[in-house]
Design a binder for these strands. Structure first.
Lengths: 115, 115
DNA sequence: TTATCATATAATGATATACTTATATATACA
DNA sequence: TGTATATATAAGTATATCATTATATGATAA
């Protein structure tokens, strides 16, 4: 078998449980190709700001995502250095791109750009 | 990108939620290499028979596993024909083999064999 | 400063989840 | 038959989860 990092069952199931929520799973897929800030997610998922914040908190707690403040916004990005990132990546690879939601954001002029 | 079946986000998250339980995830990993019957799982997980039965029910409901009666026992096996099996397989590939639990069963003479 | 915008946290409530115990069903065997 | 064994289902309960509303924090801009 090709060399693959094996993951403790306890940690694997915890990780899958976190991804087993449509909102968080979609967030991860989106973050794989775009950094996003909280207010963008609020638009995309049409969900309250605290709800989004709490989902991101869970992803951050196990370090699946990183945050970086840029002015008044906080941008989230995927943590590609995570020990379990190979697993994450192979899961996300089976999911459809979420281009539409980003495109829609841009069409509405709601995409946040920080230079 | 290599041709990969893409999975609807709704179904993917539902699937990951089911795997996001240590017992069910371990069951799937075990089933990948061995058929098992309910009473074996009861021993392996040291859990009540109804609890095991209910976990298997959930896996069966979305057709991740198949059941086959052999005499008084009902054996469960992984459904390799499942539309999402490629995803399942890549997840399970990141998990450690569960040889010990089967070996322990055999040592205790609790492994069920049906000829 | 003070007001505003973006985000986080706290408290709460509804629903989902994973057990438990009790009971039903189905096969095997004496 | 009748009893034992394997499994499934039902009902109940404790806890977890995911949303909501209200409030706090922190940065920017007037």
């Amino acid at each position: 078998m090709i060399e693959t990092e094996l993951i403790d069952m306890q940690r694997a199931s915890q990780l899958l449980k976190l991804l087993g929520d449509k909102t968080r799973l979609t967030m991860m897929k989106l973050l794989q190709s775009h950094e996003c800030c909280v207010c963008e997610f609020v638009e995309i998922f049409n969900m309250s700001q605290p709800a989004i914040s709490q989902h991101l908190r869970k992803l951050k707690d196990i370090e699946l995502v990183k945050e970086q403040r840029k002015g008044q916004w906080i941008f989230y990005s995927i943590n590609k250095g995570h020990e379990d990132y190979p697993l994450i990546q192979s899961i996300l690879g089976h999911l459809p791109e979420q281009k539409d939601s980003i495109a829609e954001l841009e069409a509405q002029g709601l995409r946040i750009c920080c230079k």
